[in-house]
């Protein structure tokens, strides 16, 4: 309640003096942007796959604070990443590092796509080869037929 009154008083004061020296243009500092960039790569460990930038959890808030404090002390983004890795392990990163057994994860989809594509290509070629060239092709489907008829009508 007290806070409300205070806020209303402040608001009234500001409204009555619209362009007083109180108003300021606020902007992000370089530090803010750096904090955001780093925070987006770190996982909020108590949330469901959320990074500490997007999460509203208290732990995420404190981790953002740690990132900011360390940046102020002159640590590089790499140092900060190393620090969190040394406390929480790979789990803290939003994506698994691309080394060791994790190659399975990173390369898996592309291996599947290439392998599947190659397999499919061979199969299709094989099927085409085994299919006898049919002189009496069955009637093409309706939309094609309609179109052909139309084209025929137009030509005639």
């Amino acid at each position: 309640m007290l806070m409300m009154i205070r806020l209303i008083v402040t608001a009234l004061f500001i409204l009555s003096t619209p362009w007083s020296g109180l108003a300021e243009v606020q902007d992000e500092t370089l530090l803010d942007i750096q904090v955001r960039e780093i925070a987006k790569t770190l996982r909020c460990t108590v949330c469901q796959t959320e990074n500490i930038w997007e999460s509203g959890a208290p732990l995420a808030q404190q981790m953002r604070g740690v990132v900011r404090d360390r940046l102020k002390l002159g640590h590089s983004p790499e140092d900060i990443k190393e620090y969190f890795l040394s406390r929480y392990g790979d789990y803290i990163m939003m994506q698994p590092p691309a080394h060791g057994v994790n190659w399975f994860l990173w390369a898996g989809p592309f291996v599947l796509l290439l392998g599947g594509g190659l397999f499919l290509y061979k199969e299709v070629i094989g099927w085409v080869r085994r299919t006898p060239a049919s002189p009496t092709a069955p009637p093409p489907p309706l939309d094609e037929k309609a179109r052909q008829r139309l084209e025929h009508e137009l030509e005639s």
Partner: peptide, 11 residues
């Protein structure tokens, strides 16, 4: 500030 917990990798 939550710094201790983070130092110890607390979940």
């Amino acid at each position: 500030k939550g710094q201790l917990a983070i130092d110890y990798g607390v979940y």
